[in-house]
Design a protein around this nucleic acid. Structure first.
Lengths: 144, 144
DNA sequence: TTCCTTGCAAACTTTTTGCAGCCTT
DNA sequence: AAGGCTGCAAAAAGTTTGCAAGGAA
C-alpha cells in the first residue's frame, strides 16, 4: 500500500471524511518536490489547479494530519510551520535536517542517530522521551 | 567578569549603546527564573517595574542580542520565540532541552552530546555545521 | 439524513515598521 | 552635536474561528 492510500486509511479508520480537499492535499504532499512547505506556500501552489480551496482548509487539515501522524511538522527558527508527508512505515524511521544558513536549503539526514543517547538521558533526568527534533545549521556544499 | 558585564562589553565593543532598556533586559535575563520566556512574557514581567518600556523595544533588542550572541533563541513547535541569556564563556558550552508534552516544563541537559556525530555528518553531506538544535519531547518525572 | 467539512471573511496573535523626540557617546 | 535608540501606534504576517452552505457516509 502506498503512502497516499495509507493516509486515506488513517482518515477512514478514525471516521474522518475523505473529502476532495483532503485528497488534493495528500496527493500534493506525496510529491517529493512539495516537501517542507508552509501552509502559505502550499496554498499558493495548489491554488493554480484548485483556485477555490481556502487557506483555512489547509491550516485545519495540516493540524489534523499532524495529529493523525499523516504529516510531520517542522519548525525552523523563523517560527513558521512547514510540513512533509510522513513515511507511514511500520518501522517508524526518524530523520533529521540540515539547514543552510545562506540559501535556506533543507537537506535530510536519513538515519536516526539518537537511540542510544535517549536511553542515557531518560535515566539521568527521569524523563520519558517520545520524540525528538534535531537540526543542524550551517552551510551547504554550494554556499560554504 | 560576570555575564552581565560581559554582555555590556559585547555591546560596547561593537558600538551599540548601553541604554537603560538594554540594561534592564540583560539584568532581568540574568536571573535564573527568567529563562525561556517569550517577548510577551518578558514584557509582562518587566512592565511591573518599568511600565514605560515598549514591547517593540523588547523585540528589537532580543533580535540584536541574538545576533551578538548575548542570548540564545529557543523555538519550540508552537512557533513562539523564547530567549535565555547565553553563557558567554570561553568554552562555548552547548546544551539541549527536554520539553514536557504535558506541563510544558523545560529541562536543560547540560552536556553537548553531538560533537562526534557532527564530524560524521559534515563528511557524509559535504556540509559545514556551525550550530545545532536538539530537543527531546516526552514526559517529565511528575507527568509520566 | 446527519453532521462533518468547506470557503469566506473577520478576528486574533505575534512580530515588524515608521516616525518624532530623547539620550548615549 | 550626531546619530543610534526608544515609545507609541499602525501595519504586517501567520494562524484561528464563526457561520451558512455543501457533501461524504
Amino acid at each position: 500500500m502506498n503512502r497516499i492510500d495509507k493516509a486515506y486509511k488513517i482518515l477512514a479508520d478514525q471516521a474522518y471524511k475523505t473529502t476532495e480537499p483532503r485528497r488534493v492535499l495528500i496527493e500534493f504532499l506525496d510529491d517529493d518536490k512539495n516537501k517542507h512547505l508552509s501552509c502559505d506556500e502550499i496554498y499558493d501552489r495548489i491554488s493554480k489547479d484548485h483556485p477555490n480551496m481556502g487557506i483555512a482548509t489547509i491550516y485545519r487539515n495540516m493540524q489534523l494530519f499532524e495529529e493523525l501522524g499523516i504529516v510531520t511538522k517542522l519548525t525552523l527558527d523563523d517560527g513558521i510551520s512547514r510540513y512533509e508527508l510522513a513515511n507511514l512505515e511500520e518501522d517508524v524511521h526518524q530523520h533529521h535536517h540540515l539547514v543552510c544558513l545562506n540559501c535556506n536549503k533543507l537537506i535530510e539526514v536519513k538515519e536516526d542517530l539518537l537511540g542510544a543517547l535517549e536511553v542515557e538521558i531518560e535515566q539521568e533526568h527521569d524523563f520519558k522521551i517520545v520524540d525528538h527534533d534535531l537540526k543542524f545549521y550551517g552551510y551547504c556544499s554550494k554556499c560554504k
